[in-house]
Design a protein around this nucleic acid. Structure first.
Length: 259
DNA sequence: ATGTCGTGGACGCCACGA
């Protein structure tokens, strides 16, 4: 079984890239973040022609998440219990049962600046996510929690730790939140990079991609019970190249069958 | 070099989020 997660930074703008990528890489499940599309505008028919069902949660300009699956898409759930809002609930999480797995596609708030209310919101959101994940881990199916976490878990997950002093994504509270999530019984799968450091995001500005200045902020957290089933995991760095790329690359994880 | 993108409002440029 092949799983993937990709922050596409507008699915409408990224459809040419996604439509080229899906039939070539053929994931069984693809989790999307930052679709930036209202549900009514989601290109479900075009994706269905490629063999994928869609579960979506979006309301327009910002955020928006989805799960595409060709192995079943049941018991769809949007948001989670006691999810904080900004001030209303944002479209940052969707869950579905895809074959043998319970899969969550999540988009953690960015946090902006350390003194911003958005940073507090990010930490509260991560705490609530942890409690929701604790409940899900008690369920019948192994849990996959993946998406854009907007946190680089370790110093080696950013191109230069000294460049991030005083910035979000690397602070102790953010890293602690990820560590507590993982401690519930999840494994942070370490994908091999096809070239260079194992980053999943490179800022569009200042030629950061070409300089190799990226971050690993997209994560695939697998239930400990299936982490030994991983046969391969990689970051598709090539997806960050070429015409109109997202600023994130997809993570692809292969699991041995049957689970 | 805060140097790029993407969206949407109101119009060819700005605000906002990342």
């Amino acid at each position: 079984m092949r799983l993937a997660t990709w922050n596409v930074n507008s699915l409408l703008a990224r459809m040419p890239r996604v439509v080229e990528w899906l039939p070539r890489v053929r994931p069984d499940v693809l989790c999307l973040q930052e679709t930036k599309l209202a549900d009514v505008a989601f290109p479900s028919a075009e994706l269905r022609e490629l063999g994928y069902e869609s579960a979506v949660d979006g309301d327009g300009r910002y955020n928006g998440v989805a799960i595409l699956s060709r192995v079943g898409l049941d018991d769809v759930s949007r948001g989670f219990l006691r999810e904080p809002g900004n001030p209303q609930r944002e479209r940052r999480s969707i869950a579905a049962t895809c074959g043998p797995l319970r899969i969550w596609s999540i988009y953690v708030p960015n946090g902006r600046e350390l003194d911003s209310p958005h940073y507090t919101y990010k930490l509260e959101w991560l705490t609530a996510l942890r409690e929701a994940a604790r409940e899900e881990l008690a369920g019948a199916r192994p849990l996959v929690l993946c998406g854009d976490f907007n946190v680089a878990p370790r110093d080696q997950d950013v191109w230069d730790p000294s460049a991030f002093v005083g910035l979000t994504h690397v602070t102790a509270p953010e890293r602690q939140a990820i560590a507590e999530l993982v401690a519930l019984g999840l494994t942070d799968i370490q994908p091999r990079a096809l070239k260079g450091a194992p980053f999943t995001y490179w800022d569009y500005r200042a030629g950061m991609f070409h300089k190799g200045c990226g971050m690993r902020i997209d994560l695939m957290l697998l239930d400990d019970s299936i982490s030994s089933r991983v046969t391969d995991a990689y970051i598709d760095r090539d997806a960050r190249k070429g015409q109109k790329p997202s600023d994130h690359a997809p993570i692809v994880v292969d699991l041995a069958d049957p689970l």
